[in-house]
Design a protein around this nucleic acid. Structure first.
Length: 617
DNA sequence: ACCTGTACGTA
DNA sequence: CGTACGTACAGGTT
């Protein structure tokens, strides 16, 4: 397949810039202008075009059988697709490729990657391009800009040559799908619904504010809210910050002392606390506003980071994080995401994928078997806890069982377990004392002793990894000093992993890692944030990484026949025409009911639905 | 303009 | 020793 490497240079100024706005808003803005574009076909010489009709220049090549390669292809690809209607057979992206291979150690910029691979130096943009329209460049300036752009194209192509040999083809297909979510948007936004929703939220918030005697600032500011509580004779609750160890206000909706105040005998206190909790979350409002703005420009391009988490999960991008849309309380924003005309949105989510994977990877065979027989494992564990048969009808008891299966598999302790039950979910909250919590945790660990053993195996792996050793966890996952090898060949990497007096720690954030390395090279002292790591957490990381692989393989399979609109960790969302919708749903569920090749004995299951909008699936 | 801590939404 | 994210906001520093 021909590889065409492309890089756009576009107009920007102080305010109209990618630093200040989203990629979607930037490209759709009336100020958008292509200054020039560099194009390289395979390893041929890079061509530069800076005329008034990039479309005709670009369209001289047939991309329908070619791959287009860029660094940050969401940007250049969106220009190609939205402005010129160019949609290649395959999108390639060196930014996406760098993430799984280098974790946080190199950084995603073309400059850093080019230096790392000794490909040459990325040029400084010598032209004073800010605020300058294409026609305002002198010939000499434009020539310098061309050299800069051509160098970037050549570096991107050279970088791809380095990365491609380490990269599974299946994963390239997933990168292509991820780019297409942005470059070929299909979700439509329901502007009237969003506007009504925004109006409703604003009204509700105003009513809340009107019910108390203080203003919005007094609710939003911790210190001012404390004063407001004191003025009603309440001692503001405090707690010790887990992060800093310092005393801080306990004003979160998960702080029991705070929610207790909702039942305070003084109704003014109830109203004040209720107003604070209702005002503090702004996510509905800000998100709705953002969607309204996008809806005025067009359909919804979806930006996901292909390998956002170090476990391989996707993460959200371009300011709209589609992976944390409210769903429990209010479904309105999801309902505003509509299928195109004469089409349906089909959503399918993998059932208890992480619980199944932890049982499978640890060899907890009785639990795997229970999933295989489609038994209700939450009710079954609850039956053990309560010493009597629990069914789906026993909502509270089953909730306890569910919390055990989902939480206790990664080493959660009794106190946190007790609190998790108390905080509750979906209107169910369960109060137990610490002794009872300890009994349940012990029971879980006795019954699922293979999972406990797996934590220990992961702990041994950490020890070996810090000592430069290698080995395997249950013959399933090899590891060495560079990390734990996953079934797709990628690694879970723990940068700068080291043993401490009571465990292990690593550097999880890129800038910290590079500060740490620089400090080591120069002998300078450094103070960076270390992230703790231990057997139970490695177990969770492995399970999350395996689940991410399962869903990416499923995405690639589904994508052969249908348009994958986006994904949310264990859920795949497809758009298909009305006539195809039932077929698509059947195919989607079939794919998501098929175990991966590397775990043919893993029982997987899924649940699906279709509707005109995402919220009703 | 940027940084840190906290909170809160999802999985 | 549940974990993985991204964003908004407050309150501080540069």
């Amino acid at each position: 397949m021909d590889v065409v490497t492309i890089d756009f240079e576009t107009y920007y100024d102080k305010d109209y810039s990618l630093k200040k706005m989203t990629t979607e808003a930037y490209i759709r803005n009336p100020l958008f202008e292509v200054i020039g574009v560099g194009v390289k076909i395979n390893d041929g010489p890079t061509d530069w075009y800076s005329g008034s009709n990039p479309k005709s220049f670009l369209s001289s090549f047939d991309y329908s059988k070619a791959a287009i390669l860029c660094h940050n292809t969401a940007f250049d690809g969106a220009i190609l697709s939205w402005k010129y209607g160019i949609k290649p057979r395959l999108w390639l992206d060196t930014l996406s490729m760098a993430r799984p291979l280098h974790s946080v150690t190199v950084g995603g910029s073309l400059a850093a990657l080019a230096t790392y691979y000794n490909l040459g130096k990325k040029g400084d943009e010598v032209v004073a391009a800010q605020g300058k329209r294409r026609e305002e460049f002198t010939d000499e300036e434009m020539e310098r800009y061309a050299r800069y752009c051509i160098n970037d194209v050549d570096l991107t192509y050279a970088l791809f040559q380095k990365l491609k040999n380490k990269f599974p083809v299946k994963e390239l297909v997933v990168i292509d799908q991820t780019i297409r979510m942005f470059t070929e948007p299909c979700i439509q936004l329901d502007t009237p619904l969003l506007e009504k929703h925004l109006n409703d939220i604003s009204t509700r918030k105003q009513e809340l504010l009107a019910s108390v005697s203080v203003d919005r600032n007094s609710l939003m500011s911790n210190d001012m809210f404390a004063v407001a509580l004191q003025s009603l004779g309440v001692v503001p609750p405090t707690k010790i910050s887990p992060r800093t160890g310092q005393e801080t206000w306990a004003f979160a909706k998960t702080d029991k002392a705070m929610t207790d105040l909702l039942n305070h005998p003084d109704e003014r206190v109830q109203a004040l606390v209720s107003a604070r909790l209702g005002t503090k979350s702004t996510i509905e409002e800000t998100r709705t506003k953002a969607f309204i703005e996008i809806s005025q420009r067009g359909s919804l391009p979806i930006m996901l980071n292909y390998y956002g988490a170090h476990t391989g999960r996707f993460s959200g991008g371009d300011k709209i994080n589609l992976q944390n849309l409210p769903s429990r309380g209010n479904n309105k924003i999801r309902q505003a995401l509509k299928a195109p005309q004469y089409s349906k949105i089909i959503a399918c989510d993998s059932a208890q994928i992480e619980a199944r994977l932890v049982a499978w990877v640890a060899g907890q065979e009785d639990l795997v078997q229970a999933f295989r027989e489609k038994r209700d494992v939450y009710s079954e564990f609850a039956s053990e806890v309560y010493g009597r048969t629990i069914t789906k009808a026993d909502k509270i008891e089953r909730f306890v069982g569910k919390t055990c299966v989902l939480g206790l598999g990664y080493g959660m302790g009794a106190e946190k377990f007790r609190r998790t039950l108390e905080i509750g979910q979906a209107g169910i909250s369960v109060k137990i004392d610490l002794n009872e919590a300890e009994r349940i945790v012990r029971l879980y660990r006795q019954k699922n002793w293979k999972i406990v053993e797996f934590w220990n195996l992961c702990g041994y792996a950490l020890t070996a990894m810090t000592q430069g050793g290698s080995g395997s966890i249950r013959g399933i996952l090899k590891y060495d000093a560079d990390g734990i090898v996953l079934p797709n060949g990628f690694r879970i990497q723990y940068a700068a992993l080291r043993a401490t007096s009571n465990g292990f720690e690593y550097v999880s954030e890129g800038r910290s890692y590079r500060n740490y390395i620089n400090a080591k090279l120069t002998g300078q002292p450094h103070s960076i944030a270390w992230t703790k790591i231990y057997g139970g957490k490695v177990t969770e990381n492995i399970v999350q990484a395996l689940a991410a692989i399962v869903i990416r393989e499923q995405m690639a399979a589904v994508g052969k026949k249908y348009k994958v609109a986006f994904q949310v960790h264990d859920e795949i969302i497809v758009v298909a025409g009305n006539a195809d919708a039932d077929h698509a749903e059947r195919y989607l569920t079939e794919v998501m009911s098929t175990p991966p090749q590397w775990a043919p004995d893993l029982p997987v299951a899924c649940e699906s639905g279709q509707a005109d909008n995402y919220g009703d699936t």
